[in-house]
Amino acid sequence: MHLLHPFTVPVINVLNLLAACLLLLSFAMLSRRRTQRLITLFAWQGGILCLSTSLVAYSSGLHELYYSAALTLLLKVITLPLILRRLIYRLGAEWDSETMVNIPVTMLAGLMLVIFAFGLAQPISMMATTITRNMLGIALAVILLSFLMMITRRKAVTQVIGFLAMENGLFFAATSATYGMPMVIELGIALDVLVGVFILGLFFFQIREQFESLDLRNMENLKEE
């Protein structure tokens, strides 16, 4: 079975390194205030995903994974950041500033989440057969951290970026734990994400039209009295 294809030592090391970078980028996203920086970081995350996927493809000999790496490159490194950048330029939302909770506290919460994710992943990864199983903890941590970012930000654009970063984590979990999802599903998800971003972009314009700001605090007024 090609699933049990052994990694050579340097490859697993490089993969570990890339996984660590992914986590580092997630933390960097948590700590940044400017939307543009967030988009850059998101693009970097995509780049690392692309690299790690092609590395897994190379060492496991699964050629479908090359396609998914190419897809990642196209969608997450080039298209989406481009769209998002244009979006924030046209919305005038380059300066998404204040977070709900101050940054060190957010980071501390993030640290606790990482410990939680790692602890949780330890028994699961024992069951997984692939050598990349340790990466599962990282993937879980990336998902949780993106979620945290969505919780602590106020502006709509940042939340979308958080959502996309979460998808990155899921994708990484898929490649690391099971050598990727079937191509059909992957294409489907990619399309979903793309369409989702378009729709959300439309929503942004609507929101701004309505409240003259992208601050989601305004949505609180929508509840029934």
Partner: peptide, 20 residues
């Protein structure tokens, strides 16, 4: 804030070492 971030990154490194 800057230094808290440095500190947390260092701790994170420790955790990553324990995992990976």
């Amino acid at each position: 804030e800057f230094l808290a971030m440095a500190f947390l990154l260092a701790v994170l490194g420790l955790l990553v070492h324990l995992l990976l």
